[in-house]
């Protein structure tokens, strides 16, 4: 099983620690993982802005970069969804694309982790992972509850997962929406943060760094003590109690 790690462009540039954590998680699970160096972006920013055709170049490069792999794993629900919907067509000879959490739960079937993270953590359910990839049961749909990111976080020692009032409302990032509809976007972000704040969350986590980047932007501007961390960082965390105190 050859796994190619796809790191979204903005994670590569601004959040290398998320990529490192993702890589280390896969390596420590004994996966044969490689990171093709010629990768850039899946083309989602162009496509979601209505310029799908300008995403064709990045898409072709993507296919070339990952043609040798059985699986593509990516620590972003949104980029994974775009890749599945617009880069591949679900054919037999294509690599299978997985978001990191679902790869851990569904393919590797991880049952335990060695991570320690003694903090109060709130999960931000990013929409594309939630409703596009079914990482959890969205609150709109009826049926049996499941939640893959939560299932993994529950394996972390010392963690306290906090229930929210609106467990899966959008944070308002939405790619270029964040700047085109700045007022609504920031309003939505502030409301999400308030929900975490009111429940005593110390760290907001999720499977999409883009949403967290938006929330972090507001938190830092407002000088909030709440931190954001990608779920890979927590699943790979080695924080002891003493560091917490």
């Amino acid at each position: 099983m050859k796994v190619g790690l796809f790191i979204p462009c903005y994670v590569d540039q601004f959040y290398p620690q998320v990529a490192i954590a993702s890589l280390e998680l896969l390596e420590s699970a004994g996966v044969d993982v490689d990171y093709p160096l010629k990768q850039t972006c899946c083309g989602q920013p162009m496509a979601n802005s209505g310029y799908q055709e300008y995403g064709e170049g990045p898409a072709a490069l993507f296919r070339e970069n990952f043609s040798e792999f059985d699986y593509v794993v990516c620590p972003s629900g949104s980029c994974t969804l775009h890749t599945k919907d617009h880069i591949y067509s679900g054919k037999e000879n294509e690599p299978k694309v997985y978001e990191l959490c679902e790869f851990l739960t569904d393919v590797l079937k991880i049952k335990e982790l060695t991570a320690d993270f003694p903090f109060k953590v709130g999960i931000h359910a990013s929409c594309h992972g939630l409703r596009g990839l079914n990482l959890a049961k969205p609150s709109e749909l009826m049926g049996v509850e499941f939640n893959k990111p939560k299932q993994l976080l529950e394996m972390v020692n010392g963690i306290e997962l906090i229930e929210l009032t609106r467990k899966d409302e959008c944070c308002g990032f939405g790619g270029t929406f964040a700047v085109l509809e700045e007022a609504v976007s920031v309003g939505m972000g502030k409301d999400r943060i308030k929900d975490h704040e009111e429940h005593g969350v110390q760290v907001i986590t999720g499977a999409d760094m883009s949403c967290l980047m938006h929330l972090e932007g507001i938190l830092r501007r407002d000088k909030s003590p709440i931190k954001v961390m990608h779920i890979a960082e927590i699943l790979n965390a080695k924080v002891s109690k003493t560091q917490n105190q």
Partner: peptide, 25 residues
Amino acid sequence: AWGKHRELPEVPKESFKEWYRKNRK
């Protein structure tokens, strides 16, 4: 427009790709 009510991400010393080149390749 991003920066009206939000900070931009803090800039890391190196990209993941740079880190990967140094540490894995």
